[in-house]
């Protein structure tokens, strides 16, 4: 570890504080804007201290919003993010298990096919995917939001790498103990992967929560909007004026669940880094 003393220490801290202020200031402004009234925002200078309309603005946003109640959008986002995170983890675990522990024809081929899809971002395949989902009649549905994003090459690859570090003897010991493959998977492999799963969950939840383009394409009814894209939908078209306090309240609300997930999982996350049990 590099040891810093005197000026060096102060400079480092100064750098960090400036950096944090830089990132935090817009969020603070959004928070302030969500606690005042519309005319306070549009008339310069913009206030820098919170007003007294916190409960009023948030209650209005949650219950009625602009196009749809924010509570509904929050729920949609939650379903989508959880569906994507849990689905991706389940599918990746199973496919990594198959690739590492079973010998079947085309095993390498399938692995490389999965790996190949890493190179194709959602945007590249979004039009054909839309076509498929539309033909299945999944527009404006949770399945439509979740299914196209549920497979993950990254997670499969990660679990594959982890499983390959698990000693073969462990699988053999389980076999001698009489565990069938799926029993081994659930009793031994899954508990051993729990810190990896926790880390991935955090990443994938945020990935799912922050999806913008896909929900924008396939949800046309405001009741199915997710919150991240819903914010954009709140901006008026034409000559209507934007109701900034509600929009800002929605922005703040959209930030809360990922923050909760990160803080809540932090302990497990760090334990995963410190603990080395294999």
């Amino acid at each position: 570890m590099v040891e810093k003393r005197g000026t060096g220490l102060w400079l480092t801290h100064l750098g960090l504080i400036v950096g944090i202020a830089f990132i935090f200031f817009p969020i603070w402004l959004a928070f302030v804007a969500s606690t005042v009234e519309q005319h306070d925002i549009v008339r310069p200078p913009m206030p820098l201290l919170p007003g007294d309309k916190f409960f009023e603005n948030y209650a209005r946003a949650l219950t009625s919003g602009i196009n749809a109640p924010v509570a509904t959008m929050l729920w949609n986002s939650l379903v989508m993010a959880m569906g994507i995170a849990l689905g991706k983890i389940a599918i990746s675990l199973l496919s990594a298990f198959a690739i590492v522990y079973f010998r079947f024809p085309g095993r390498q081929l399938f692995f490389w096919l999965i790996f190949l899809t890493l190179m194709l971002p959602v945007e590249v395949r979004i039009v054909p995917t839309y076509e498929v989902i539309a033909n299945f009649g999944m527009l404006n549905s949770y399945q439509g939001l979740i299914l196209p994003l549920i497979a993950s090459a990254t997670a499969t690859f990660l679990f594959r790498q982890f499983f390959m570090t698990v000693p073969d003897e462990l699988a053999e010991a389980a076999r001698v103990d009489g565990a069938k493959p799926m029993r081994f998977f659930f009793d031994i492999l899954l508990p051993m992967s729990r810190t990896n799963i926790a880390a991935l969950f955090v990443i994938l939840f945020i990935y799912g929560w922050n999806q913008y383009l896909w929900p924008l394409l396939i949800t046309t009814e405001p009741e199915m909007n997710t919150i991240v894209m819903g914010i954009k939908q709140m901006f008026p078209s034409g000559d209507d004026f934007a109701h900034w306090p509600t929009i800002m309240a929605t922005s703040i609300l959209a930030m809360v669940p990922p923050v909760i997930v990160v803080i809540g999982m932090q302990k497990l996350f760090i334990r995963g880094l410190v603990e080395s049990e294999k």
């Binding site: 053999e172 076999r175 001698v176 009489g178």
Partner: peptide, 29 residues
């Protein structure tokens, strides 16, 4: 299958299940 051969094996690196207690390790089979 190994489990039906009525054998027990001790491995070089012990192959203990890391997330289970000593009791559970012994009781698993």
């Amino acid at each position: 299958e190994p489990m039906d051969r009525d054998i027990a094996m001790v491995f070089q690196n012990y192959a203990l299940y890391p997330h289970m207690s000593v009791f559970d390790n012994m009781a698993y089979g």
